[in-house]
Amino acid sequence: MGDAAQDLDTKGGALDTAKDLLAGAAGGVAQVLIGQPFDIVKVRLQTSSAYSSALNAATSIYAKEGPLAFYKGTLTPLIGIGACVSIQFGAFGYARRYFEAANQANAGSSSSSLAKDLSYGQYFAAGAFAGVANSVISGPIEHVRIRLQTQPHGAGRLYSGPLDCVRQLTTRGGGVFRGLYRGEAVTIWREAFAYGTWFLAFEYLMNADAARNKIRRQDVPSYKVALYGGLAGEALWLASYPFDVVKSKMQTDGLSGKDVRYKTMRDCFAQTWRAEGARGFWKGIAPTLLRAMPVSAGTFAVVEATMRALS
Rank of each mutant, 00 (worst) to 15 (best):
G2S: 12
D3T: 07
Q6E: 13
L8P: 08
D9C: 08
T10L: 10
D16N: 15
D16A: 13
T17R: 08
K19L: 11
G24P: 01
G24D: 06
G28T: 05
V29I: 11
I34R: 01
I34C: 08
Q36H: 13
F38T: 07
K42N: 11
R44F: 01
L45F: 04
L45T: 09
S48E: 09
A50C: 08
S53N: 08
S53V: 14
L55G: 11
N56L: 02
S60D: 05
I61V: 08
Y62M: 14
A63H: 13
K64L: 07
G66V: 12
L68P: 08
Y71H: 01
Y71E: 06
T74S: 04
L75W: 05
P77A: 04
I79L: 14
I81M: 07
A83R: 07
C84G: 02
S86G: 15
I87T: 04
I87G: 04
Q88M: 13
G93N: 05
A95W: 00
F99P: 08
A101F: 02
N103I: 14
G108R: 06
S109I: 03
S112L: 08
A115T: 09
G121M: 10
G121A: 12
G121E: 00
Q122S: 06
A128T: 06
A128W: 00
A128R: 02
F129V: 15
F129Y: 13
V136I: 13
I137M: 10
I137F: 06
S138M: 13
G139T: 15
P140A: 09
V144D: 00
I146A: 11
R147Y: 04
R147P: 01
R147C: 05
L148Q: 00
L148I: 09
Q151D: 05
Q151H: 06
G154S: 10
R157I: 06
G161R: 04
P162H: 07
L163V: 15
C165H: 00
Q168C: 11
T170Y: 03
R178V: 12
G179W: 00
T187D: 00
T187I: 07
W189M: 12
E191M: 12
A192D: 02
F193M: 15
A194R: 07
T197S: 12
F199L: 15
F199H: 11
L200H: 10
F202S: 02
N207F: 04
N207K: 14
A211C: 04
I215T: 07
I215Q: 02
R216L: 12
R216F: 02
R217C: 04
Q218E: 13
D219F: 03
P221Q: 05
S222C: 07
L227M: 10
G229V: 03
L231R: 06
A232H: 03
E234I: 12
Y241T: 06
P242W: 01
P242Q: 04
F243E: 03
D244K: 05
V245K: 00
V246T: 09
M250H: 03
T252Y: 01
L255N: 10
G257W: 09
V260F: 10
K263S: 14
M265C: 12
D267G: 08
C268I: 09
C268P: 00
A270P: 05
R274H: 09
A278P: 00
F281P: 12
G284T: 12
A286V: 13
P287C: 11
P287S: 05
L290C: 13
R291W: 05
R291A: 15
V295T: 11
S296Y: 13
A301V: 00
A301Q: 07
V302H: 03
V303N: 06
E304L: 06
A305Y: 04
A305V: 02
T306H: 03
R308G: 09
A309P: 02
